[in-house]
Design a protein around this nucleic acid. Structure first.
Length: 889
RNA sequence: GGGGGCGUGGCGGAAUGGCAGACGCAGGGGAUUUAAAAUCCCCUGGCCGCGAGGCCGUGCGGGUUCGAAUCCCGCCGCCCCCACCA
């Protein structure tokens, strides 16, 4: 007697052990082509969240699918284990960061195994282990040798809460990406990777990635690189003769310059201001401009502000004199820090000129337009060039730009220039829990790299985190004191550590050879597996990790360490996992249990009615307005204020978390996996509902019963399918093989598991209807196809069914089913017949019926003749195998 | 302001030039049950009609086409990213 209950706990544990025992994911199939699937590795926070669950399930489904497609699959996992949370925990609790981190890793490892993800645990790595960060340090030295690392003074983003500098990419809306506090500006001497030197190559690489990476990611990177072409023109200070280069994308408006503005931190000011008559007043204004809030929100709305310096500039194109201003909108970080002001043809300059009463000089004439006096704003379109020396009269100013640049170069007044918004990557952090930068400062020799043989520079263990402030490394005398490698004299170690994005810029390559202690990796092993064939992760890394890792690959290629420049051939970005969250009007998030529903009189509705309303909120999008329309209100159980609903990413702070462990306890991993993939395409937002997970459970148990009942009537494995079958069985086989084709297309066409699951559901619905008439061999075939097709998604379930169907060995050692075209061919098709574009009848015909015959049958159909009565047929459109459209008047 | 994405039932979504709403959730009805849960069967875009059936319908307005959710033009709305970038 077959076991009727679907005992997921037993089944899942059994197969996880067996896969582990048999080394299913240890890429041992050397006879097969290699395929490298990688999920972005996690930070070991200590607990898996639903976002991880979707991410790693997707990766695992791809891994298992590729196994079935006959590849030798590499599917490694590791830990992005350096970073602030561990250090903050150490300050709070006194637990050393490595202990905290190892504990978290152990816990998450357990959760991961339980979810059934097939990782090659033999390759596990953690970036905070010395045998890993030793190589992070080694790369730093190699990059340093090549001039790709520089130490320079620069205004940097400073997070006072994290007590560290941040990369531009880590500042979101002027706030620290990690802790959310306001980021300020500070001048500091810091370490940088020369990311900007790779701007053009990073951009050029997009040609290779287009179509294989999401458009949105490429667009974001393009924007971040921010290439713009124009000219650099040399203005001069009239009073001192000092040169002042200016970048412009509009050299066609050079004759319209009526002022020039520089950034408040422009170095030229230090030469001009001392002793100048308005020095104190101007310095005061500069302080005001620099002190203003740095958040982007504030900046966007910030009023344009400036002050006249008392100095003037000479325009190189015509010798004209214009006042030199300091303006808060001029940024030292872009171009040359100096902007020419052309109010007539630039909206920002227009506003500035209007505010300070500066001159407006028209140099482009709009087609049939009046002069600038009558304009409500700057004219930025194309027109005829006027008042511009040799170029006056040119009909299209944009087309004249290249000729103007040539003229500037010929005359020695400027030159062609391409500018990028991309900044160098600030890699140093004033924190303990990161890879120490391997540099020693010596009073005699200066800045000395740590010799390779002395790597790794280990993090000291004897740190008292609970006491003191700032970087704990700077307080560790045993660490700081070090002999100069060059002269042997006393030296001081660099106490900054590296941004954790340095660690994650090369981990994907280390996975090819993770235990190598003589080199970062063996070249042959790296060449075998890399680049990563399929990378999977969140889109939030578009301009950070994904840009840095590309830069690293290019730099490593230049060092001769790898043979590719693009590390990730294909990229897939999964959507967010969202769930309804509740917010009380005083801006506090509430757990669902603390939301009450009251009726028109203000008294609570009965519990059962409330439950129904909550269900409708979850499942039918019932919102505050809908609730109000029915006379109800949602209120905070604590303070009685109104509660608003918001569909938002599952997170601790929004109090809408779903604990993966608790869900796996109730339903098992396979149910969660099925649910996560069955509703929406995986790159879209996924909405978590209680009913949704129940539905997936129902689907699985129904399938389980169907298979268990089927076991009693199907033929043994390997029984051939009879050559002649009745209509029901021919039809079942046809749908079975069509299902194979459609599922394969759904997966290959962009991992659309939702439609793949829909296709197997259709087949199962059909099988349930005809199972009493199904031939034992045909029924086996159908069940096996469904189990195989779903196996990447519900692996434990599938392997258990597979073995109960009488197979030995794991289903993942089988091959993906193939569509038998002969069996899948339709015997007859239904052809819609339209009259004047409206569906009026359906004909059942053989699929290969010639168009002429199809047309004849359509016209002679009785229903169609009724519709055509009293009309004349003007034209008949016949698409063979698809439809007939009759045009009649 | 710029860039990317999206707009289809009560909800998630399917259909990428040819039968709109696959598959699922929620809802309704029935069977089973002492009852409930679970399970099984049927119905479920709107309007009209006893019914056969008809009409309307993919954000709005126009266009191309025998035929448009799908392609083109113009609007409206939502989400995400960047944003005083010279």
């Amino acid at each position: 007697m077959a076991e009727v209950e679907y005992n997921f706990a037993k089944i899942e544990e059994k197969w996880q052990k067996r896969w582990e025992r048999d080394g299913l994911f240890r890429n041992r199939r050397e006879d097969r082509p290699p395929f490298y699937v990688l999920n972005m590795y996690p930070y070991p926070s200590g607990v898996l969240h639903m976002g991880h669950f979707l991410n790693y399930t997707l990766g695992d489904v791809m891994v298992r699918y590729k196994l079935l497609r006959g590849y030798n699959v590499l599917s490694p996992i590791g830990w992005d284990s350096f970073g602030l949370p561990a250090e903050n925990a150490a300050i709070r609790t006194g637990t050393p960061p490595h202990e905290f981190t190892e504990g978290n890793i152990a816990r998450m490892r357990g959760q991961m195994r339980r979810a059934g993800w097939g990782f090659d645990w033999g390759r596990e790595l953690a970036t905070s282990h010395p045998d890993y960060y030793r190589w992070t340090q080694w790369f730093f030295l190699k990059f340093h040798e090549r001039g790709l690392v520089v130490k320079k003074n620069a205004p940097v983003n400073w997070c006072s809460s994290c007590q560290t500098v941040l990369a531009n990419e880590q500042v979101k809306n002027g706030e620290c990406e990690r802790c959310g506090s306001q980021v300020g500006q500070k001048d500091m001497n810091q370490w940088f990777f020369r990311l900007s030197a790779y701007a053009e190559r990073l951009l050029a690489g997009h040609d290779e990635l287009r179509g294989k990476w999401p458009d949105a990611v490429l667009a974001m990177q393009e924007e971040w690189i921010g290439k713009s072409e124009g000219a650099e023109v040399e203005f001069r200070i009239k009073e001192t003769g000092e040169p002042i280069p200016v970048f412009t994308t509009r050299p066609d408006t050079l004759w319209g310059v009526t002022f020039l503005s520089v950034a408040p931190e422009h170095p030229l000011l230090e030469k001009l201001l001392p002793g100048s008559p308005r020095e104190t007043e101007i310095r005061e204004a500069i302080r005001g401009m620099r002190a203003g809030g740095t958040s982007a929100r504030e900046q966007a709305e910030r009023e344009k502000e400036g002050i006249f310096t008392g100095f003037h500039v000479i325009n190189p194109v015509d010798g004209g004199v214009a006042p030199l201003w300091i303006a808060n909108f001029a940024l030292m970080s872009y171009g040359t820090g100096a902007v020419m002001g052309v109010p007539a043809h630039d909206q920002r300059d227009w506003e500035f000129a209007e505010k300070y009463g500066l001159a407006v000089r028209q140099v482009i004439r709009a087609p049939n337009a009046s002069g600038p006096e009558a304009w409500p704003e700057a004219f930025t379109g194309a027109g005829e060039i006027v008042n511009s020396g040799p170029f006056s009269g040119e009909p299209d100013n944009f087309e004249a730009i290249p000729r103007i640049i040539e003229w500037l170069e010929a005359e020695g007044r400027g030159r062609r220039k391409t500018n990028y918004r991309l900044r160098d990557w600030l890699l140093s952090r004033q924190r303990y829990w990161g890879a120490p930068i391997p540099i020693i400062y010596c009073d005699r020799c200066g800045l000395v790299p740590v010799p390779e043989k002395d790597l790794p520079v280990l993090l000291p263990a004897d740190i008292d985190f609970a006491r003191g402030s700032g970087n704990p490394l700077a307080r560790a005398k045993s660490f700081v004191d070090a002999a100069c490698p060059a002269c042997g004299g006393p030296g001081r170690r660099e106490t900054d550590t590296m941004d954790t994005f340095v660690d994650s810029s090369w981990y994907h390559i280390r996975f090819a050879d993770p235990r190598n202690d003589r080199a970062c990796w063996d070249a042959a092993k790296a060449a075998k597996w890399l680049p990563v064939d399929q990378y999977i992760g969140g889109i939030e890394h578009a301009t950070m990790h994904l840009m840095y890792a590309r830069f690293f690959a290019m730099a490593l290629r230049d060092l001769g360490l790898v043979d590719f420049s693009e590390p990730f051939t294909r990229l897939f970005c999964q959507g967010m996992v969202c769930k309804l969250a509740y917010r009380c009007d005083d801006c506090k998030w509430l757990p669902a249990e603390e939301v009450g529903i009251v009726g028109p009189g203000g008294d609570p509705v009965p519990e059962e009615e409330a439950r129904t309303l909550f269900k409708r909120m979850e499942n039918q999008g019932l919102d505050e307005a809908g609730l109000a329309a029915e006379g109800f209100r949602a209120v905070c159980a604590r303070c009685g204020r109104p509660v608003r609903f918001e569909m938002t990413k599952i997170s601790k702070s929004k109090l809408n978390i779903v604990d993966p462990d608790a869900i796996m306890d109730r339903f098992g991993a396979d149910t969660v996996r099925l649910y996560m993939l069955s509703d929406a395409p995986p790159d879209r937002m996924q909405i978590w509902t209680e009913d949704g997970i129940n539905g997936a459970w129902r689907t699985l148990t129904r399938l389980w019963r169907l298979v268990m009942e089927g076991l009693e009537r199907i033929s043994p494995p390997g029984t051939p399918i009879p050559a002649t079958l009745d209509g029901v069985n021919r039809s079942l086989r046809r749908k079975t093989h069509q299902c194979v084709r459609k599922v394969t297309e759904s997966i290959e066409g962009g991992y659309q598991f939702n439609t793949a699951i829909a296709r197997t559901n259709e087949l199962l619905n059909l099988l349930r209807g005809v199972r009493d008439q199904a031939h034992p061999a045909v029924m086996r075939e159908t069940l096996e196809v469904v189990i195989l097709a779903l196996s990447p998604i519900i692996p434990h379930f599938a392997d258990e069914c597979w073995s109960r169907l009488g197979h030995s060995g794991s289903i993942f050692e089988e091959s993906w089913p193939e569509c038998d075209e002969a069996a899948a061919r339709e015997e007859e098709t239904e052809i819609p017949v339209q009259v004047n574009g409206r569906l009026r009848a359906r004909l059942t015909v053989p699929p290969d019926l010639p168009p002429g015959e199809l047309e004849r049958r359509a016209l002679s159909d009785s229903r169609i003749r009724d519709w055509l009565a009293g009309k004349t047929v003007a034209k008949v459109v016949t698409v063979s195998g698809r439809l007939v459209n009759i045009l009649a008047k």
